[in-house]
Computed example of a mutant assay.
Amino acid sequence: MPSSIARPAALAVAGLIAILPLSMVSCSAAQKAIDCGNTAVKVTGDIADLAKAYDNSSNDSAAGGKALQKLRGDLDQIGRNSKNTDVAKAVSDLQKQADKVQQAVDKKQAPDLKPLGDAAGNLTSVCTG
């Protein structure tokens, strides 16, 4: 009996080895989409935290600064790890908008978060398009 089980198993492994290079192409595209989607979700969450922090700034004035610092750190990491030029450009646009938010905060002005949200929407479009 062991040989009757071993032969189908060996054939199955041989079949997988033959198919694997073909499936790697589609898997890498799927992995890229998953990575990009996770990036968009992370950034969107950071922006939501930032908006919430500024909405509640009377309760915790340091929360906005912490949320902005987290967003900028995540964008730096994503920018370093992205090999896709469209994603890198979208992240660069997000970084510019985060800089504008920081400038407003430094001037003790209420930041306009809409352009930051629009840039995040662009990243989502790049990831899904």
Rank of each mutant, 00 (worst) to 15 (best):
S3R: 05
S3D: 08
S4V: 13
S4L: 14
I5D: 09
A6F: 12
R7Q: 11
R7K: 10
P8W: 02
P8V: 04
A9H: 03
A10S: 09
L11P: 07
A12L: 14
A12I: 10
V13M: 11
A14N: 02
I17E: 00
A18E: 00
A18N: 04
A18R: 02
L22W: 11
S23K: 05
S23E: 03
S23L: 14
S28L: 07
A29W: 10
A29K: 13
A30V: 10
Q31K: 08
Q31R: 13
Q31L: 14
Q31E: 06
K32G: 01
K32F: 07
I34P: 04
I34H: 11
I34K: 11
G37Y: 01
N38R: 11
N38Q: 11
A40R: 02
A40P: 09
V41P: 02
V41M: 06
V41K: 10
K42Q: 15
V43I: 15
G45Q: 04
A48R: 08
A51E: 12
K52C: 00
A53K: 02
A53R: 05
A53D: 03
A53L: 05
Y54M: 12
Y54Q: 14
D55H: 14
D55G: 15
N56Q: 15
S57Q: 15
S58W: 09
N59P: 00
N59A: 15
N59G: 12
D60F: 09
D60T: 06
A62H: 07
A63N: 03
G64H: 03
G65Q: 04
G65W: 02
K66H: 01
A67W: 06
A67T: 08
Q69G: 06
Q69Y: 15
L71W: 06
R72S: 15
G73Y: 04
G73A: 11
D74I: 11
I78P: 14
R80N: 12
N81Q: 15
S82A: 15
K83M: 10
K83S: 15
K83A: 11
K83V: 13
T85R: 10
T85N: 08
D86I: 01
V87P: 11
A88W: 01
K89W: 00
K89V: 05
V91S: 03
S92H: 13
S92T: 15
L94Q: 07
L94P: 08
L94W: 06
Q95K: 14
Q95V: 03
K96T: 14
K96I: 07
K96E: 09
Q97S: 06
A98N: 04
D99R: 04
V101D: 03
Q103Y: 02
Q103V: 07
Q103M: 07
Q103F: 02
K107R: 14
K107T: 00
Q109N: 06
Q109L: 12
Q109M: 10
A110I: 07
P111N: 04
P111S: 01
L113F: 05
K114D: 06
L116V: 04
L116P: 11
D118N: 12
D118G: 00
A119S: 14
A120K: 02
A120S: 15
N122Q: 15
N122E: 11
L123R: 06
T124V: 12
V126I: 09
C127T: 00
T128W: 01
T128L: 03
G129I: 03
